[in-house]
Design a protein around this nucleic acid. Structure first.
Length: 289
DNA sequence: GGTAGACCTGGACGC
DNA sequence: GCGTCCAGGTCTACC
């Protein structure tokens, strides 16, 4: 099966849209950086897995799959691809305030096919090294998702102790299963939160109300839904400001609060795109530093 | 409202 | 080889 996705944003570049946020390294996503092929097992009817490859040809994306794909499932895959690559975000105001980002077409940061997946991935990224995050996501797909990223229903059916043991997610197991059950049983309407036009404070409050989501994770989730006016400050931010901006990391809570305020001021001129300005600095260092 | 301690896991580091 | 620390934090009990 082969079909196209268009229109694409002006000057869209698949490589840039995939490789500027680390979630492309997490299972079940696979990115062939030599051939510029994105592979992902998408969810089709009744959550069945549809392995597919996405490539770019001029002004369209080409999706190919060895599976049969119904017309409705093509729609599902289009929706998932458009979310992953943020095809529907208008970044022209961001490019207007950041010339270097405009030149490099930087700003369409890779994310997951669903917000649920982004929340779980964010939880697996907290308080661990990146290699552990990669491992947790691989084990979640292998042992719970049947090769794809686990659905809320699949995770809701797992006992936290089993998840801890099989997927090595540690204390995150109880939090992940609780979230999955809240979503699967309708207590959290996760799709309704995937809306950048909603009030920022309301969104932040809804994310922070999820057990296991604190200030860092809530801010990170804001950028995942397209709200860029906050910087998720973590130990990586501290390191960046030590190494690039020469600011030492204080040890006291009061000192840290002052540093946070300085970081906020540093990016204030890019409002409401502070996160993109921060990530541009950080990712540029990852890529070329 | 602010703070200390616990929390899974695995890699890095010093000895 | 072993112990300790800590990594792209968060929660809870306690003051």
């Amino acid at each position: 099966v082969r079909f196209t996705i268009r229109p694409l944003p002006p000057r869209f570049d698949l490589k840039q849209a995939v490789s500027t946020y680390g979630y492309y390294m997490l299972a079940p996503t696979r990115w062939d950086k030599q051939r510029l092929v994105l592979e992902y097992p998408f969810r089709g009817a009744r959550d069945r897995l549809i392995p597919a490859r996405v490539t770019q040809r001029d002004d369209a994306l080409i999706v190919t799959s060895p599976s049969s794909v119904s017309a409705a499932e093509r729609g599902n895959i289009r929706t998932q691809v458009r979310r992953m690559l943020r095809l529907d975000e208008d970044l022209s105001p961001w490019f207007a305030v950041h010339a270097a980002a405009r030149r490099q077409r930087f700003g369409r940061l890779f994310r997951s096919t669903t917000l649920f997946e982004d929340v779980v991935r964010t939880m697996t990224g907290c308080n661990v090294t990146w290699s552990s995050t990669i491992r947790m996501n691989q084990l979640l797909c292998d042992h719970v998702g049947g090769g794809g990223f686990p659905t809320p229903q699949q995770l809701a059916a797992v006992k936290p102790d089993d998840l801890k043991q099989r997927c090595k997610v540690g204390y995150r197991a109880e939090r992940i299963v609780r979230l999955a059950r809240d979503v699967a049983e309708g207590r959290i309407d996760i799709a309704a939160l995937d809306d950048p036009t909603r009030d920022r404070k309301e969104l932040y409050g809804a994310f922070a109300a999820i057990h296991g989501v604190g200030p860092y994770a809530a801010r990170n989730l804001l950028q995942h839904v397209g709200c860029y006016d906050h910087v998720p400050i973590d130990s990586e931010t501290y390191r960046h400001f030590r190494e690039v901006h020469g600011m030492s990391t204080p040890k006291t809570p009061g000192g840290l609060r002052k540093l946070h305020a300085r970081i906020e001021r540093h990016y204030a001129r890019y409002e409401p795109y502070q996160f993109l300005a921060y990530w541009f600095e950080l990712w540029h260092r990852y890529d070329f530093g």
